[in-house]
């Protein structure tokens, strides 16, 4: 039983890794490549660690594998954000099929400032205020 679970987890992990690698080869520009590589790669590593934890079924190994999974969960979005941002701002060309770019107009490469386009409106809430039954006026 354990063998089957471990096998499935390991194969899923390797499959995700391979998917990430195929994506990084095939996709056309930097942001789309990051979609494939950072997430699928992290998923692959997490599945593999889950397989390791199941195989050893031991408290110490379990804690270590859990620590690795949590670490990957925390760091992979930060790394993706940092590289994606740097790649975008140094002017890596986007794919010709990109249909929309709302960031380019708001960014000033001279002063390195990024406007939001909502400077004049004071609060961020655009939705109509919800009726709140708890507070009677």
């Amino acid at each position: 039983m354990t063998d089957i679970i471990v096998s499935i987890l390991l194969l899923a992990g390797a499959g995700f890794m391979l998917l990430a690698a195929v994506g990084i080869i095939r996709l056309p520009d930097l942001p789309t490549r990051m979609h494939a590589s950072t997430k699928a790669g992290a998923m692959g590593a997490m599945f593999t660690m889950a397989g390791v934890a199941f195989f050893f079924a031991d408290g110490v190994v379990l804690a270590r594998a859990f620590a690795i999974v949590v670490f990957i969960l925390i760091t992979s979005p930060i790394a993706a954000h940092v590289i994606g941002r740097a790649g975008y701002f140094i002017g890596t060309p986007l794919w010709s099929g990109t249909i929309k770019d709302e960031l380019r107009d708001n960014y000033d490469s001279q002063t390195h400032t990024l406007r939001s386009g909502y400077e004049d409106s004071p609060e961020s809430v655009t939705l109509p205020p919800k009726p709140n039954p708890d507070k009677n006026p």
């Binding site: 390991l10 992990g13 390797a14 890794m17 990430a20 690698a21 990084i24 930097l30 490549r33 990051m34 590589s37 950072t38 790669g41 992290a42 692959g44 590593a45 593999t48 660690m49 397989g51 390791v52 690795i68 990957i72 790394a79 590289i83 740097a86 790649g87 140094i90 890596t92």
Partner: peptide, 22 residues
């Protein structure tokens, strides 16, 4: 470009983590 290579390096690190686990 250089960011592409950095992304590839990140992926290689993930794959090596998987390798070590296996």
């Amino acid at each position: 470009s250089l960011p592409d290579r950095v992304v590839a390096l990140e992926l290689i690190a993930s794959i090596v983590v998987g390798f070590v686990g296996v």
